[in-house]
Design a protein around this nucleic acid. Structure first.
Lengths: 107, 107
DNA sequence: CATATTCGTAACCATATGGTTTCCGATCAC
DNA sequence: GTGATCGGAAACCATATGGTTACGAATATG
């Protein structure tokens, strides 16, 4: 574990609504940068930066195609996020754990 | 969906190794702020700020107990993170989807 | 060839983040 | 009551973040 820079990048990438919306749209299929930028009330370079953040987290890949750039979803890293969160599952699945801890701690 | 500030706070809280380590330690049981701060090479106020970030995401709750403050894990919000990520599961579980999209797009 | 389009980079700016040190209120111990 | 300890708040600082506009390289168009 130590510091796990990949998880830092991953969660940071997900902590922005614009970036999450981009991922949502990419579920429907690959899109050019221009198509991705169109619905957002911000400039193309701003979207380009968001895509760089997503690419650093390995959540998208960009491929030059002619003068356009096609962006594709790479969802695999999200599995790591899910797995990480799942390790806490027993903690939210009921208060049995609280009782167990209470007993363990000599209560 | 719109903007979902709760997910912003949640993923932001998780995007820091110190905060994730704090959550890890809290899985073993509640801890005082001092106990939580002890292993980290940073000041108590720094940890206090990290705890505020975690509290804003509803991942911990703090309770004054005498002059100490006890911190408890509240893992429920992590379920939302897991559920969010899981919506992408079919995207990482095989390339069948790619074929489907290829066909849908008239390839 | 000339021009328009796509998209990334550079430079810049305002604000947020993450750390520090200092201080203060509350509580416990004596 | 005096003094030590716990922990949050305030003030401060350096850097990161998230946006902008301007520009330039590469590609398509006519």
């Amino acid at each position: 574990m130590v510091s796990d820079h990949a998880l830092d990048d991953l969660f940071h990438a997900l902590a922005d609504p614009t970036r999450r919306r981009i991922l949502e749209r990419l579920r429907e299929g690959e899109r050019t940068v221009g198509e991705l930028a169109e619905p957002f009330p911000m400039s193309r370079p701003a979207i380009s930066k968001h895509l760089s953040v997503l690419a650093r987290a390995d959540l998208v890949e960009r491929e030059a195609r002619g003068r356009e750039t096609v962006v594709r979803l790479r969802a695999e890293p999200l599995r790591r996020a899910r797995d990480w969160a799942e390790r806490y599952e027993r903690f939210w699945t009921g208060r049995l754990d609280s009782l167990a801890e209470y007993l363990e701690e000599g209560g």
